[in-house]
């Protein structure tokens, strides 16, 4: 859809973002937050909003591969960027190992923080395939979860790490979730 936010003020900018490999172009106000571009312009509502101080991480997405809190970036700031959201994790009907880990280890309850938490985990495992528990906890310390007490989130990420390492070690069949 086109953004409703163009109705209020005069100045708009043309922004093009590639989200999960698909381009989205819209005329947007300079004040439009990236998270609102993702949710309302692209219509991808898996990315959530949990606070207004960049504290909770529910809105975490990957911007050019780096985790970023999309409530604190303007869409115009990241014009041209590659964005990855929770909707882009599953590939060809196959869950990303992090998604699988969250199911297997009961890493989610209400599910609201889960997309942001998983994207932080994906970025961690892409740069550090064998993180220690402390490294995992440190990596997700910018993502708040009120339901799980983090124990099973840590286990979920450890599960995914193991799956990804094993897939890497096995030349065939094709690596599970190793796409970038």
């Amino acid at each position: 859809m086109t953004t409703q936010t163009t109705q209020t003020t005069q100045t708009t900018h043309k922004v093009t973002l590639t989200i999960n490999g698909q381009p989205y172009t819209a005329e947007v106000e300079p004040r439009l937050l990236l998270v609102h571009f993702i949710r309302e312009v692209a219509g991808l509502t898996g990315t959530h909003i949990g606070c207004d101080t960049t504290s909770c991480g529910a809105c975490t997405v990957l911007v050019n591969g780096v985790p970023a809190k999309s409530c604190t970036l303007l869409a115009v700031q990241v014009d041209g960027a590659e964005i990855r959201t929770v909707e882009g994790l599953e590939q060809d009907g196959k869950l990303h190992p992090v998604q699988d880990g969250f199911v297997q280890e009961h890493g989610l309850q209400c599910g609201f923080c889960t997309p942001g938490m998983m994207l932080t985990a994906v970025a961690l495992l892409e740069r550090n395939p064998q993180p220690t528990e402390d490294e995992i906890r440190r990596a997700i310390s910018g993502n708040l979860c009120r339901c799980t007490g983090y124990v099973n989130i840590v286990k979920s990420i450890q599960y995914a790490a193991k799956q990804m390492r094993e897939a890497q070690a096995t030349p065939a069949p094709a690596p599970v979730g190793a796409e970038v």
Binding site: G46, H48, Q99, H106, G111, F112
Partner: peptide, 17 residues
């Protein structure tokens, strides 16, 4: 394993917003 997880891990939950 939880039935509800299938939608949540895909960003397919349906919250009020």
């Amino acid at each position: 394993k939880r039935k509800e997880d299938a939608r949540f891990i895909r960003g397919r939950g349906r919250y009020v917003d």
